[in-house]
Design a protein around this nucleic acid. Sequence first.
DNA 1: CAGCGCATCGGGTGAACCCCTGATTTCGAC
DNA 2: GTCGAAATCAGGGGTTCACCCGATGCGCTG
Lengths: 216, 216
Amino acid sequence: MTTVYLVDDHAMFRAGVRAELGGRVEVVGEAATPADAVAGIVASRPQVVLLDVHMPDGGGLAVLRQVGERLPATRFLALSVSDAAEDVIALIRAGARGYVTKTISADDLADAVERVAGGDVVFSPLLAGFVLDAFRDAPAAPSVAAAATDADFDQLTPREREVLRLLARGYAYKEIAAELFISVKTVETHASNVLRKLRLSSRHQLTRWAADRRIT
Amino acid sequence: MTTVYLVDDHAMFRAGVRAELGGRVEVVGEAATPADAVAGIVASRPQVVLLDVHMPDGGGLAVLRQVGERLPATRFLALSVSDAAEDVIALIRAGARGYVTKTISADDLADAVERVAGGDVVFSPLLAGFVLDAFRDAPAAPSVAAAATDADFDQLTPREREVLRLLARGYAYKEIAAELFISVKTVETHASNVLRKLRLSSRHQLTRWAADRRIT
DNA sequence: CAGCGCATCGGGTGAACCCCTGATTTCGAC
DNA sequence: GTCGAAATCAGGGGTTCACCCGATGCGCTG
């Protein structure tokens, strides 16, 4: 039977997977945080890791990076509520062997786990399309955004973070200026610095970036 | 034993709740869509409905509104991955008796359900703070964008929704025009109509609005 | 004190955005 | 056959964004 390690910050969801997949695969361990996950995976050596994408402290990406180096034989199947292209692409680039959304049924998930264990690559049907698009190269889709990392965020000054927050909420420069009692020009300067430091090129990307990180 | 009806579009999560709460409460039914949920709740008359906030076809809000009128005695406990203020406030305004995040443990969830069944109001500790803030008075923030409702969304024509989707992804008018094989001017018209119908005033607010609703 | 990061402003440019009026075509409904 | 909704496009004007250049103060550090 395929051995599986479960990483998800929602205890309830882990319980669901355990209950539904119990008969088809062997769950050898589970963790709620990236740190616990890394330790647990190294200790239990599962064939497949079911990995939630959105978690505190770096999410699935952090787990993938740390474990991937040490145990290259481990297969990762990303499991997420998000079907956003950035998430999918980031996980795949980091070495995940598949990506399915949490809308998946128990049967399909069990199939996916077994196929990944067997060496296959698995995607939710809806995702397969733009995964191919993304890797074809020149994205017929524009702008795609060289995803800013959380490390970039640390470079922001306090004032810049303040402006970032308001930008993310959709405020116009003028409104931000009024809110912070500074001139529109100063807001422009901060905004420009934020975009440069996060390596983004427009407010739209900034809003998306912030929304993905629950910055409100 | 408290009777509970389960509404969540993730089968895996429902299974988790069922498995973990099985001993403490009686799950009398479950549904994956608002439509099924309304029918099922009316038929099974549970004491408490565990309601996921983010779902296709209007989410938990739709269920709450439709069932709330017909069965005023039913208690709703919102259960969401999101801890965004808008979500919480919207659900509470619509009549939910509590709001907890999916990070909750099985024990705490069982407690919450029983307390809601008994007439209490339950919030995740982290949420209690800004729920009070939100109801203390007006936001003091500018422009605030009289939040567009999902009802407004229904007024959009098919083409407008298409444009909305691309706007939300951060495409420039020019790029949308190229994508849809129409002129920039037509895109402007559609965009303008979308903003008016959703009662928003800029595409930045639109980006935010769409991100909050997971429109990609 | 000289240097540096931070925050504060300004001027100017080109592009993108938002709105207004007005027009045509198509298509289904009355 | 007419009416209205939807989609298409154009012209024009004002606003906002993103970036370029520069400048001034303030506080900290070597």
